[in-house]
Write a protein that binds this DNA or RNA. Structure first.
Lengths: 168, 168
DNA sequence: ACCGAATAGTTCATTTATGTACTATTCGGT
DNA sequence: ACCGAATAGTACATAAATGAACTATTCGGT
């Protein structure tokens, strides 16, 4: 009995009251939000011992995954699915704590290149084991075929979500 | 070329640098976050004209989907995937604007029953057409079989996410 | 070469969200 | 019946996130 059953019931009833309200997409969107929220909360709990939260983690991981060359703030914004103002805020924190380096892109002086310092890399490698085992617990829900299926379906959903937002 | 490609590349590289970091669950979790974020932003944009945001909407819809009987704040918290403190905050707003009724549950006086006022129902019915058509755009990405598949996989993912959080 | 439009990023005020502590009530074992 | 533990909800201080305005730089058409 998941807590989501309540949501499902409400959606079904709304669809009855107002037939134009589409049951299936409403379910999908609510499921995504609920999962996202649980992942967020759980990550916050685990990361707390490192003085980090889930957003900090997302940003740090994207930087860890680009080696020494660094990336721009806009790339970081897209990769971490955050607003640029929020990326700036998080980067200020990471920079102040000595985990991030920042320098102007010589190619385009509007751009700011960000990357991890050695201290930042060490920090990431410190929490990576616990975060990896957490991620593995999510992965354990599916076999390889299902995982591939889910990834494919989510990519398509993300595609339309991006498009809808763009066209609005 | 989705903006998610950047994320995918970072994850692959991280997996190379630190093989214990599991690529697939990391992808799933990031996809969910990205979708959630886009849905949130788009809904905020659409709902703005009604003086509402996505969270207000989620709460209002759950209340609309339970007819006159109302629901408790805890049920609302679960159904809307929010923290109780946030539900209180949103309810204060909705109450102040005259869209929500609140009264103590006679069965258990710790509980507060919330429901929509007639004005609240009218408001919901006012934005439901635009929100329904927005939802339909998401649904258009899949045929019936795929939708069912995705719903099933997401429910399972939510199940483990809930369990992981519970056990932490 | 020039200039208006577009892009990258930050700042700032405000809104939204969270953790924690607290009150009131109910539950459950004795 | 009593009392310590558990539950429901709110209050409050703080943190996280956002929109919009702004600066600096680059782009693109003439």
């Amino acid at each position: 009995m998941s807590r989501f059953d309540a949501t499902e019931n409400r959606i079904n009833l709304t669809h009855q009251r107002f037939p134009g309200y589409p049951r299936e997409p409403a379910m999908l969107v609510r499921l995504v939000k609920a999962i996202s929220q649980h992942v967020h909360d759980t990550a916050n709990l685990v990361l707390r011992q490192y003085g980090l939260n889930h957003t900090d983690y997302n940003v740090l991981m994207m930087l860890y995954g680009c080696q020494q060359e660094g990336m721009t703030v806009t790339q970081l914004r897209d990769a971490a699915a955050e607003k640029s103002a929020n990326v700036t805020r998080v980067c200020n924190i990471l920079y102040d704590r000595g985990w991030m380096a920042r320098f102007a892109d010589p190619q385009d002086r509007r751009r700011v290149l960000v990357s991890l310092t050695p201290e930042g890399e060490a920090l990431v490698e410190q929490f990576l084991p616990s975060m990896s085992s957490l991620l593995n617990q999510y992965g354990a829900a599916f076999d390889a075929r299902e995982t591939a299926q889910l990834e494919n379906l989510l990519k398509r959903l993300l595609g339309v979500a991006e498009q809808i937002e763009r066209e609005l």
